[in-house]
């Protein structure tokens, strides 16, 4: 049975791009897959150099690949994972892909004409846009998961686990580079009263609103996390006690002056802050000391920042 007639319709309908170049990298042939997606007419460009037919090719890279195919007479490959596309071709998923161009897997194969002398290269281009799209979606999901994994669902600041882990890293960094490091631990004053008066939703509203407000007062490098309930922590890298107290006082004042509108009522809240500077303590010791200072701030009448001093430990014992 004569099968030659099959070749043309197969090449035309093949869901793979077929592009043939001669040894000077001039375009000899391409099939409909490429013609339609690149919007070029073979009859008009046949014999032209590859780079004159297709715009913006990674030319130095491509030439090296093609050279190896010609000289070694072995195939070369390119994967979309390493190079998303070689030739700018439209794909059929314009909505679901964030890329304008088709992701491509390409095989470059050596061909010899029946004369046994003339060398050609055949590029087979497969559409890998689906794989590309799935991978993008996967990456996005992973990023969202990572974000969710370190964020407090209610306030959007870091959660306790992540925040405390970061405190450990910051302590190591401070130790290594001999940089100062301070820690603020604060608590909403009379949060129980707020909840009783406005309900839990009102309490949540205040936590969200104040987290946003306090967050806006911090540097990008500061690490703001929810320690639990209405208790929060802020890690201040490269900051000594003087600077940390300034930050704490500014936060206290800003919060005290901030009016919040909830269900047509104006709310106000205050916070108490314990401030501690790092000096060779462990994570737990540091938090413990900040907590002591915070307790003293409460005892001294709330709405204030208190710096940790060893004497406070005695004060704590006395009142207990």
């Amino acid at each position: 049975m004569q099968l030659d007639w099959l070749l043309q319709p197969l090449l035309t309908q093949l869901n793979t791009g077929v592009l043939v170049l001669d040894a000077q990298y001039r375009v000899v042939f391409f099939n409909q897959f490429i013609a339609r997606r690149a919007d070029v007419d073979l009859a008009k460009v046949q014999g032209n150099l590859l780079e004159d037919v297709f715009a913006d090719l990674p030319l130095a890279w491509l030439r090296r690949k093609l050279d190896s195919v010609l000289h070694l007479q072995v195939p070369a490959f390119s994967s979309w994972e390493q190079r998303q596309y070689i030739i700018k071709l439209a794909h059929l998923r314009p909505l679901s892909s964030d890329s304008q161009y088709m992701a491509q897997n390409c095989s470059m194969l050596p061909l010899t004409a029946p004369d046994g002398v003339s060398r050609y290269i055949c590029l087979l281009i497969e559409d890998a846009t689906d794989a590309y799209v799935y991978q993008q979606q996967l990456q996005q999901s992973v990023m969202q998961l990572e974000h969710a994994n370190r964020t407090d669902g209610l306030t959007g600041v870091y959660n306790r686990r992540y925040w405390q882990q970061q405190l450990g890293y910051e302590i190591q960094r401070a130790e290594r580079y001999q940089h100062p490091l301070s820690l603020l631990l604060f608590d909403l004053d009379k949060f129980k009263d707020l909840n009783d008066q406005y309900g839990h939703q009102g309490g949540d509203f205040v936590l969200i609103e104040l987290s946003r407000l306090i967050g806006s007062l911090l540097r990008d490098t500061d690490l703001f996390g929810r320690y639990g309930g209405e208790e929060f922590g802020i890690i201040l890298p490269d900051t000594g006690m003087t600077g940390a107290l300034q930050v704490a006082n500014r936060i206290c004042d800003t919060v005290a002056q901030h009016k919040m509108l909830y269900n047509q009522q104006t709310l106000k809240a205050t916070i108490s802050i314990g401030v501690v500077s790092y000096f060779e303590q462990s994570v737990d010791e540091l938090i413990q000391r900040a907590d002591t200072a915070l307790y003293c701030a409460k005892r001294q009448g709330r709405n204030r920042a208190v710096a940790y001093q060893p004497e406070l430990e005695g004060y704590l014992k006395k009142v207990k």
Partner: peptide, 21 residues
């Protein structure tokens, strides 16, 4: 050395050259 090519691409390139030859 002249342009930015990923480590992965270099390794697949050299592998395909060495094995297919």
């Amino acid at each position: 050395s002249d342009d930015a090519v990923s480590e992965a691409e270099m390794l697949t390139d050299i592998s395909s050259v060495l094995t297919t030859t």
